[in-house]
Write a protein that binds this DNA or RNA. Structure first.
Length: 433
DNA sequence: TCTGGGGTCCTAGGACCC
DNA sequence: TCTGGGGTCCTAGGACCC
């Protein structure tokens, strides 16, 4: 048996934990650059705000419906996530942290009443961290995920599922008939692994609900779709095809990409931005103990503007695997120089590190070129990371990143950000008697 | 005026090998 | 006139996830 513990409207709940006045109000959290809604409170969902709705299209609701919009505050969300995860881990012996707000728990060997135990964990997370969550339980990960969907929907929209399934839903405790009713009330697109495209094709073939899907035999699905969809169907039918992954593998690629706060035209501005992205990507790379053998750099205009369009990327093979910021920034800037064309309004740029390998692997080289000195700068990088961790991101950076004091067009817009209450001394909330 | 960021996996087809 | 069989690796594109 698996459980899925999932924070409700997670980013919004994090904001509410420190601003209780937001409880009961329609709230959205905006993406970087205050672009579009990436989290919505139940009240905001009730206003009809879609996931990913552009802010400028829903902004009028701030006046008419007292909608509150906040800039994403990932420092806060990450920290509250850690706290929630450590409490969720108490549900069973093994945990897989699947995303910032979700974790699977392996319930093997857990005795007693799973539903009661889940309610206890849920109320502990609510009391200690301030995040409401729902828990789904099922014999496979896909079923646990579906049970979680049922638990959340039963709480938010009465009438679709039995109300006793709200907050905690254990498929294991449902009769076969009750289970079928639940599946029949679930659109096929709500199943984990069935996205918009596959759902369209299924719907066209008359497969509308999870119950319809579960009744198709796996071989037919395999023939019509793929082994991926087949796995989803088998999981729905109760055959576990996915194990709990409690030790995630290192990333195979690491990216840092951003949209700009304002259109950028000058190469000098792009140089600063790309320096930042390459530096940040390099930092992530070192954190996971990897080196990169290839770097990709891209720039693009906005596809949403009636403007001359330009989009190009370039791959830069590296002389040898590296996690050195200076080397990576140099490669990124030289790539950028090659693809930059003047006269465009650039909206976004990014750096991706690829062909990663463990930094414990060292390829010996013959010294063909006596002039070339291979210097190990990893102690310097460790110092750099240490300073930036202790005194804050950007304390020490490459000169080509530019000076932070100046107003820079490419810096992303974050006009409604709340304080980093739990990760910055200056932002700490003060309790008044 | 204003539309996010960061990942993974699978498949088909081409190039190439013996 | 007749033109094999089996395999690997790489890439691009599509689909999915949060």
């Amino acid at each position: 048996m698996y459980a899925l513990v999932d924070g409700n409207n997670f980013y919004v709940s994090c904001e509410r934990a420190f601003r209780p006045s937001l409880v009961g109000r329609p709230v959205v959290v905006l993406s970087n650059n205050d672009g579009c809604a990436i989290a919505r409170s139940n009240e905001a969902k009730a206003l009809g705000i879609a996931m990913g709705a552009p802010w400028f299209k829903i902004q009028h609701l701030a006046e008419s419906s007292e909608l509150v919009a906040l800039s994403a505050n990932f420092a806060l969300y990450g920290d509250l996530s850690d706290r929630m995860m450590s409490l969720a881990a108490g549900l069973g012996p093994k945990q897989e942290i699947y995303s910032i707000d979700e974790s699977f728990i392996d319930l093997t060997g857990v005795r007693g009443n799973l539903v009661e135990r889940s309610f206890k964990i849920r109320s502990r997370i609510l009391q200690w961290v301030g995040i409401p969550c729902c828990i789904g339980i099922g014999p496979t990960k896909t079923l646990a995920k579906l049970a979680n969907h049922v638990a959340k929907t039963a709480e938010r929209k009465p009438g679709i599922y039995p109300e006793q399934l709200a907050q905690i839903c254990d498929f294991g405790s449902l009769s076969p008939d009750a289970f079928e009713l639940v599946l029949a009330a679930t659109p096929v697109q709500e199943v984990w692994g069935i996205g918009r495209r596959i759902a369209e094709q299924l719907n066209a073939g008359g497969v509308m609900t999870a119950l319809d899907l579960i009744r198709i035999d796996a071989a037919t699905i395999r023939a019509k779709f793929s082994v991926v969809v087949e796995r989803t169907v088998r999981e729905l039918q109760g055959t576990a095809c996915m194990d709990l992954d409690d030790a995630p593998a290192p990333k195979k690629e690491i990216a840092c990409t951003r949209s700009f706060g304002h259109p950028v035209t000058a190469l000098s501005d792009l140089n600063e931005a790309v320096t930042h992205f390459a530096s940040r990507a390099a930092e992530k790379l070192r954190k996971q103990g990897s080196t990169a053998q290839q770097l990709m750099c891209f720039i693009r205009t906005s596809p949403f503007r009636q403007d001359a369009q330009y989009s190009r990327s370039v791959c830069m093979p590296l002389r040898r695997p590296t996690a050195d910021t200076a080397t990576l920034v140099t490669a990124a800037l030289s790539g950028l120089k090659g693809i930059y064309r003047p006269g465009f309004n650039y909206a976004k740029a990014g750096v991706m590190l690829m062909d990663l390998q463990a930094d414990t692997v060292h390829q010996r080289e013959l010294a063909f070129d006596e002039q070339e000195e291979i210097r190990d700068r990893s102690p310097l990088m460790a110092t750099l990371d240490g300073l930036n961790q202790r005194f804050g991101r950007g304390t020490v950076l490459m000169a080509s990143a530019g000076l932070a004091g100046e107003r820079r067009a490419w810096v992303m817009k974050q006009e409604r950000r709340t304080p980093a209450y739990t990760t910055c001394w200056d932002d700490m909330a003060i309790a008044k008697a």
